[in-house]
Design a protein around this nucleic acid. Structure first.
Length: 586
DNA sequence: CGAAAGTGTCATGTT
DNA sequence: TGAACATGACACTTT
């Protein structure tokens, strides 16, 4: 909509200033400028604005970074070392569990190394070298870059590999500034190497980057891409692994001691067990080709990253839940045919050889296990037993053929049938108890069709289906009964539903009428009161006017002898009452 | 244990 | 005329 309306606007300087203000407010949220900028405007203007913005933010960001680092590092008064605070704000999956310990160890290692600059030196250098960076603490937690490495079985996500990526001097500029700064704080040489690749004027462009490119493919690492990971991901990544980088610089062969699986276990202690079915990139035979698919992989979706924590895989469960949606009533019309109910077979249909009591015996003979089985595989329970159903597969195949012929209805029902009813347990048990009587009857008479097929097939298809099979009279009668009962059951459900709807509609109408009545009564009372007042006023006015009338002698007229009457044309006459009565009597 | 509600089924009428 | 549908009535089950 914005895109439709904006072209009508003539963006003047004022509009652009407003957009800039809005953008500044949202830039820390990771919103790209493009979000607010319809036509991308002139790039010169954009760059100018960005530079101005950078200048404005420079000092503040440096302060924020200092705060972030101070929050991460705490001076140990006993040892004089900067030690990390216990578990920073990072709440993402892998980083929350693994990275903090890594950071802890590595920071301590770095500080002990003696080669590191002091913290003040680092901060000063940081402020001088990198004019614009995003606040570290403003970075939303994200582990996007930390997961994709798992996809490459050869070298991705190996502990030594991440540093190989990040320590690379050719690391592209748009990579998160915090990461850069931390590296610079810890390694002067790296600062010198990397500073040439930092383009402070590009932070907005980072939005366009595909963070999947940040996957530590060695080729990509060495070549470097201009656009890597969105800042919000990179920030977290950097904060978590910046120190890992340092220790791995000193132990570059550490990656050889870790297999990809080990590394996955390290980063996803519970993940593999819980989402193994989701083809977690950690497991197995991932290739670089698969790496290209990662941007589309759900687990690598930035949205999912926030919820990807060990022990919290609600996303996975939600998908399962989505596959078994509950229906409003639990007895939808389409699903209802799955329920067969007890009933008397129509012996009148030619007196075929089974009755309700016969059916009851048959019912008792049928195993409940088979009923459950038939619940799960409605098209495969036509035989007396699952084994037999496998042997007598003619009916099955025919049912399947019909399923193919009517994929819209039958397959939908079959799929719905395989879904466990998502209603209350008691209702489910109740349904299960009633579910299979007709089905068991059909199975007892070796009806080679599924009950729902019998019920829901169009009549032509149903007749053709009957014609295809040589059914005896009992079977035919049962099939007709099943069909009749099934349809009538649905009809009864519809009828009751309609009845309830009618009752509810009538109740609503009754309430409306009551309200209307109340309103009309109030209005009537109001009108009566008003009429009374008007009559009172009229009477007063009448007497006033009448008292003003005088006869020839100047005497007032008697109200009992005269009255004032008004004609249709508005004239008022004094009419003698006697005369009037005389006229009336005449 | 009985009342109320829910459900399946039958008979019958209507479409 | 038969199939599908609608609905009252009944029986049974569940609450």
């Amino acid at each position: 909509m914005l895109e439709i309306e904006l072209p009508k606007m003539l963006p003047n300087q004022q509009d652009m200033d407003l957009i800039d203000i809005l953008w500044r407010q949202d830039i820390d949220l990771g919103a790209g400028r493009e979000v607010f900028d319809y036509s991308y405007r002139q790039k010169e203007v954009q760059l100018q604005r960005q530079k101005e913005l950078e200048e404005e933010k420079r000092e503040q960001i440096v302060r924020e970074k200092e705060k972030a680092l101070l929050a991460q590092l705490q001076l140990d008064e006993e040892t004089g070392e900067f030690v990390p605070r216990p578990t920073p704000v990072n709440n993402t999956l892998t980083q929350a569990n693994t990275a903090p310990t890594e950071i802890t160890q590595n920071v301590a290692f770095t500080e002990q190394d003696g080669e590191a600059m002091s913290f003040d030196e680092c901060m000063q250098l940081l402020a001088e070298t990198f004019p614009l960076v995003e606040p570290a603490e403003a970075a939303p937690p994200c582990l996007g870059p930390s997961i994709p490495p798992c996809t490459d079985n050869t070298h991705l996500m190996m502990p030594g590999e991440i540093p190989l990526l990040t320590q690379n001097p050719l690391l592209p500029g748009p990579m998160d500034q915090t990461w850069m700064d931390l590296q610079h704080c810890l390694n002067i040489q790296e600062i010198l190497d990397m500073s040439g690749y930092v383009n402070p004027a590009q932070p907005a462009n980072v939005q366009e980057s595909n963070y999947s490119q940040y996957l530590p493919k060695l080729s990509d690492v060495t070549t470097g891409t201009a656009d890597m990971c969105p800042p919000k991901f990179m920030n977290t990544y950097d904060a978590a692994f910046s120190n890992v980088n340092q220790i791995n610089l000193k132990t570059p062969d550490i990656n050889e001691s870790f297999g990809p699986d080990e590394f996955c276990d390290m980063f996803y202690p519970d993940l593999e067990a819980k989402v193994s079915s989701a083809s977690l990139p950690c497991e197995g035979e991932n290739t670089d080709g698969q790496l290209d698919e990662l941007p589309n992989a759900p687990l690598l979706n930035p949205m999912d990253m926030h919820s990807l924590s060990p022990g919290n895989f609600s996303t996975e469960k939600n998908e399962e839940m989505a596959e078994f949606p509950d229906s409003d009533s639990g007895l939808s019309l389409d699903a209802s045919p799955k329920m067969s109910s007890p009933g008397k077979s129509l012996n009148s249909d030619g007196g075929v050889g089974f009755s309700d009591s016969d059916m009851d015996e048959l019912d008792s003979g049928a195993g409940s296990m088979e009923s459950d089985y038939s619940d799960m595989f409605p098209l495969l329970f036509q035989s007396d037993s699952p084994l037999q159903s496998l042997q007598e597969n003619s009916g099955v195949t025919l049912a399947q053929e019909d399923t193919v012929k009517h994929p819209k209805t039958e397959q939908a029902e079959a799929s719905g049938y395989s879904k466990p009813p998502f209603t209350k347990d008691k209702q489910k048990r109740r349904l299960e108890a009633r579910l299979t009587r007709d089905e068991e009857r059909a199975r007892a008479l070796k009806i080679p069709f599924a009950v729902e097929l019998i019920i829901n097939l169009p009549v032509d298809d149903f007749n053709s289906l009957m014609g295809k099979h040589q059914l005896n009279e009992a079977q035919l009668a049962l099939v007709r009964d099943i069909r009749r009962r099934g349809k009538n059951k649905v009809a009864a459900q519809n009828c009751r539903k309609r009845k309830m709807e009618n009752i509810m509609g009538l109740e609503y109408e009754l309430d409306s009428l009551k309200e209307e009545k109340e309103r009309l009564m109030k209005e009537k009372s109001k009108n009566s009161s008003s009429l009374r007042d008007m009559k009172q006023q009229l009477s007063s006015l009448y007497l006033e006017v009448f008292s003003m009338l005088k006869d020839e002698q100047g005497k007032p007229y008697s109200p009992s002898e005269y009255s004032l009457q008004q004609t249709s044309d508005g004239n008022v006459f004094l009419v003698p009452r006697i005369k009037k009565t005389l006229v009336k009597s005449n």
